[in-house]
Design a protein around this nucleic acid. Structure first.
Ligand SMILES: NC(=O)c1ccc[n+]([C@@H]2O[C@H](COP(=O)([O-])OP(=O)(O)OC[C@H]3O[C@@H](n4cnc5c(N)ncnc54)[C@H](O)[C@@H]3O)[C@@H](O)[C@H]2O)c1
Ligand SMILES: NC(=O)c1ccc[n+]([C@@H]2O[C@H](COP(=O)([O-])OP(=O)(O)OC[C@H]3O[C@@H](n4cnc5c(N)ncnc54)[C@H](O)[C@@H]3O)[C@@H](O)[C@H]2O)c1
Lengths: 209, 209
DNA sequence: ATTTTTTTGTTAGCTTTATCACAAAATCAA
DNA sequence: TTGATTTTGTGATAAAGCTAACAAAAAAAT
């Protein structure tokens, strides 16, 4: 299959989460307009996405939820699991690790890296924190392919370089540093940018220039 | 000025942060290609964004950083400050409050709301936590127009409705609940979706179906 | 003085993403 | 049986976002 649009991939992730909930309450089929209304998007958008992944529904019955979930999973997941590392286990890193572990089960936190002597050797939600010196070794040994950067911004670029060199293929960067990466997918997850965007688009009308 | 594209607003926020850093080290002018390379985008993109906000540079000298920063500020900021509330001060809420306060100065956290008796009445980075019963009252009294939702997902929709009713104009939703809002700008800041997107686009090649 | 280089500003076009409009098929109603 | 209704699937079109290309102006080089 051809590479899917980013937006479609994002929605597939959301469809799956909604559909899994519906499956758990024994709903079997769903119409495009139902799924659309759960995501507050249009039914055409839903049908188009489903078309893009090559699934086909039943006329007048809708889509079989189980089949759709399975197909989305074969598309967006890898067969088997993906191992993840968190670099920098401060306030944010600690908030994230629990959340990730309890909200999906294909991407598994298997290692934490930090420079703080007090943290090295201890575990956070069952995951061991290693020293930064061991990063390359552990990344290779544990086949880690995804990393979250939650360390101080000035170390983000050099750490990202080391991670990619060691085999990481996807990086989610929570620091405000704008990274330059070759050979890995980057998600710049920048809260201040989003916050300022919210401020702009929610500006009280009489302020708009 | 006409409403700017979302992407442009996001980049303006990033331009400003980079430019402020350069100003602080006494750089006066910048070329589009320099700014572009700092953000890892193209120079045309930079020039187009700057054109959209109606700024004009000096031929062969580039853009005067001070002027550009000021203009971006008049566009994306409101004159004066915006007050912000955080609803749910758990792991994530606590991580956020400090970060927001120390990374920009136009959007000010002025209130926290929670149901936990132990948290109500105490302060987090100098901001008081109030009970949920007082939310409408405080939102009005403090003119809060932006809110972050970092409470359990099942309370997100009803809380958002109450906030909007009380006058909030922009909501950044950190919970996985997909909200349906009327009358406010919504940023669905969904980490799992982004994480699954990173996983998809960084899938080792031999896995791609 | 003329040519080359540099850099902005902008048009036109391209790519990606979303929506419109409607055919096709299944079911329902009369 | 006929016609209306519902719902999927998709080609065509529109909107948003990005890039290529180049004119214009200024400065530098020759
Ligand atoms: N707190 C937030 O809500 C928030 C939100 C968005 C982004 N961020 C960004 O995420 C990062 C972390 O934020 P935080 O609030 O958790 O900060 P923090 O100070 O609580 O944690 C940083 C952690 O990184 C570790 N560290 C320091 N230098 C390191 C290095 N060279 N290599 C590896 N680890 C190192 C520290 O020991 C600490 O454990 C910062 O860059 C911040 O800008 C934070
Ligand atoms: N931890 C993360 O990294 C992370 C990341 C993304 C999203 N989220 C989401 O953000 C939310 C908070 O995550 P967390 O890790 O901070 O959870 P948490 O359990 O640590 O904190 C939740 C807070 O909300 C309060 N609360 C409970 N019910 C409330 C109500 N009805 N009204 C107001 N406050 C209420 C609790 O007292 C607590 O202080 C969750 O919805 C989670 O799904 C968390």
């Amino acid at each position: 299959m051809r590479q899917l649009p980013e937006r479609t991939v994002e929605r597939l992730s959301q469809y799956r989460r909604v559909l899994l909930r519906l499956l758990s309450i024994k709903k079997e089929y769903i119409y495009s307009h139902e799924l659309a209304s759960l995501l507050h998007i249009t039914a055409v958008q839903v049908r188009r996405d489903i078309m893009l992944i090559g699934h086909t529904g039943t006329l007048r019955l809708g889509y079989k939820i189980k089949d759709l979930v399975d197909l989305i999973s074969t598309i967006i997941d890898t067969p088997g699991k993906r191992n993840l590392a968190i670099v920098g286990i401060g306030n944010l890193g600690q908030a994230l690790i629990n959340y990730i572990a309890s909200n999906q089960d294909k991407i598994i936190p298997v290692a934490i890296f930090d420079v703080n002597e007090k943290k090295i050797g201890s575990t956070f939600h069952g995951v061991t924190c290693y020293s930064m010196d061991m990063m390359e070794e552990i990344v290779k040994k544990e086949s880690i392919t995804i990393a979250l950067l939650t360390l101080p911004p000035q170390f983000a670029q050099s750490t990202a370089n080391r991670l990619i060199e060691a085999g990481v293929k996807g990086i989610m960067n929570f620091t405000p540093t704008l990274l330059n990466l070759q050979g890995a997918f980057l998600e710049q997850y920048d809260m201040i940018t989003s916050l300022e965007k919210v401020a702009y688009f929610s500006k009280p009308k009489f302020f708009v220039s």
